[in-house]
Design a protein around this nucleic acid. Sequence first.
DNA 1: CCTCCATGTTTACAGGAGAAACTTATGCAG
DNA 2: CTGCATAAGTTTCTCCTGTAAACATGGAGG
Lengths: 202, 202
Amino acid sequence: MSEIKDRPYHHGDLRRALIDTALDMLATNQNWTFTLREVARRTGVSHAAPYKHFHDRETLLRELARIGFVQLGESLTEAVSLGQPSTRAQFVAAAQACIGFACQNPGLYRLMFSSDADKTIDPQLHDAAMSTFGILLDLLERGQRDGSFRPIAVSALAAASWAQVHGLAMLAINYQLLEEKVGSTPVPTALDVLLDGMCRSD
Amino acid sequence: MSEIKDRPYHHGDLRRALIDTALDMLATNQNWTFTLREVARRTGVSHAAPYKHFHDRETLLRELARIGFVQLGESLTEAVSLGQPSTRAQFVAAAQACIGFACQNPGLYRLMFSSDADKTIDPQLHDAAMSTFGILLDLLERGQRDGSFRPIAVSALAAASWAQVHGLAMLAINYQLLEEKVGSTPVPTALDVLLDGMCRSD
DNA sequence: CCTCCATGTTTACAGGAGAAACTTATGCAG
DNA sequence: CTGCATAAGTTTCTCCTGTAAACATGGAGG
């Protein structure tokens, strides 16, 4: 109703439309080899129109990655505040949320951690990534305060668990966690191994 | 002496020369956005010559990745057979070798684990990756037999440690293991946390 | 009502991927 | 030794992309 279907000269929200198209193609092809011209075509505008909204192709890719980090952050926040009894259980929930996000958006997840999403170029992307990383840090700090996690440098815990979760996610979306190779529940099992090292042993 | 410098019509080993040029550019730029034509130019041949040796640009990229896995495998083998006293110490040595390889060849390492090195397309690439992964598996199995590692499914140990090492490597080459964030020795610290979970607690 | 400017479009160009047709030199059959 | 088949290079061509520049449009504010 509020949308005029037959192409008024001005689109209304072309920026958002281009992003949606690109996200679609990313999800469909599981890669970001699409051309900017094709995004424009699929969105129904001329091939130069995107340049009014994105400086170049890579700027669009970084915006997709930024959106990915925001969405991942929401998933993590939701998982953490799901009311798991222990901090350890919250950690597992968050880890599984992250890996689940990766499996449901493999193309996007790969883009987020690829060199095409260079955080040193785009402060907004950098901030989004840091903000998402911060959710993990908060959880770890809380776990240390309540005595769940060992009182070693929180940064060491962060490095270990971030590496672990991200590593599992990458293995998962590359189909390298096949049952015949790593058993039927590789993710919780691997997380348990790590957590046994992270948690107080007393 | 044995090389004729002034361009005989036939190069002699253009395939190898193209690979070397591409590896150089990969190392220099830390990315593989180079064009096939530029590789040809730098190698001193016409832009169509590479097609006599590689079906297309991506085939060349996969060959670079394959070579990377072979080299990584050599580093790992060397690290393992360095004669560390314990299996645990051997594991640390291998992990550090992997992370060291990544830091010294960040572009190549990223390519090896990117979607441009699709292992489902190229059996040789797949085999090279599996062979390298096998070094880790052997180490873990040996560690279980000698009682160093817990007697849980070796596949779970493999998933956990592979994820951890690969995750740390990715963090390292993305400059996300800065001292101010994760302390001065994030890698051994993170590995220790994992190993405490992997090793027998008695 | 008129004019400005953000947001479109058209046109233009340099370069890349890759196919096809052509060239060269080398090894081998006679 | 001759000569041809063939592998390995080159030239030429077509289609496509990214991106810049010039032009068009139409909605918001004076």
